[in-house]
């Protein structure tokens, strides 16, 4: 059985700028890989490249076959991508948006809507929702798909605390059901709660892949973000300084 996803010397260049060079890693079903790095480092671009939505060089192997040899339709069955919020100009309702995501074998719309706390929003146009409600709709759309790999770009962005926790728990549940998840997160606590492996991207082309337990240390993260990160018990937290 080939590994689900294997990257060998993957490099990404956008607008003449090298975002990533020579990233190698692999992942199996039931794993969560968290991508960390400063703004503009290329985290979202890596997800787009893994979804086949932007070009990359090197070798990306999906179920033993080169990613670039899959058709768009085949890729959409294997990889579900959650990125920017969709536009709202054309008046799609939440239910219509969710129906567009449904694939065979995915979750049932009503139960997914309940899980994401959006049952009451189903008939409302996307344009009338808050950013948090739209983000929950996007996460629900993801759950309606039967893809074995999820690529999530800041899934907890816009969410309140309750729904952030719900989102992290949902990722854990999906992992336990065999889903492979690669996600960009900015919150170190959330990353620590869910990551099996980390990809650290430094923004000048360098990337490091390894077990979460090894890479989660205050020195490495302080260096990555060029910001103070301190250890408090078992946790790593940003050092915001003393209360003024």
């Amino acid at each position: 059985m080939p590994e689900l996803l294997t990257l060998t010397n993957v490099a990404i260049e956008r607008a003449g700028r090298c975002l990533l060079s020579r990233l190698s890693c692999s992942m199996n079903a039931g794993e969560v890989v968290v991508i960390l790095g400063p703004n503009g480092a290329g985290k979202s671009s890596l997800l787009l490249a893994l979804a086949g939505l932007i070009p990359s060089t090197g070798e990306t192997s999906l179920l033993g076959k080169d990613l670039h040899h899959y058709s768009r339709h085949e890729l959409s069955r294997l990889i579900a991508w959650q990125g920017e919020l969709p536009p709202t100009e054309f008046g799609l309702t939440v239910q219509q948006r969710l129906n567009l995501a449904v694939t065979e074998g995915g979750g049932a719309l009503k139960s997914v809507a309940k899980t994401m706390d959006i049952q009451a929003l189903l008939q409302r146009p996307l344009g009338e929702l808050s950013s948090g409600e739209r983000q929950r709709t996007e996460l629900a759309a993801l759950m309606l798909r039967d893809a074995p790999i999820w690529l999530l770009d800041e899934p907890t962005a816009h969410l309140d605390l309750k729904h952030q926790i719900q989102c992290i728990n949902m990722m854990k549940k999906q992992r336990s059901q065999g889903r492979a998840i690669i996600t960009v997160l900015h919150d170190i606590q959330q990353a620590m709660a869910v990551a099996d492996h980390l990809i650290l991207i430094d923004g000048v082309g360098g990337a490091e892949y390894g077990e979460a337990g090894l890479l989660f240390n205050s020195g490495r993260l302080s260096q990555l973000f060029d910001a103070p990160v301190v250890t408090q018990g078992d946790l790593l937290v940003p050092d915001y300084g003393k209360r003024m």
Partner: peptide, 17 residues
Amino acid sequence: LDLLLLGERHAEALGVD
């Protein structure tokens, strides 16, 4: 066309060329 209402990236990720 319906999928394109979600934006080009989403449409592409959902299988549209």
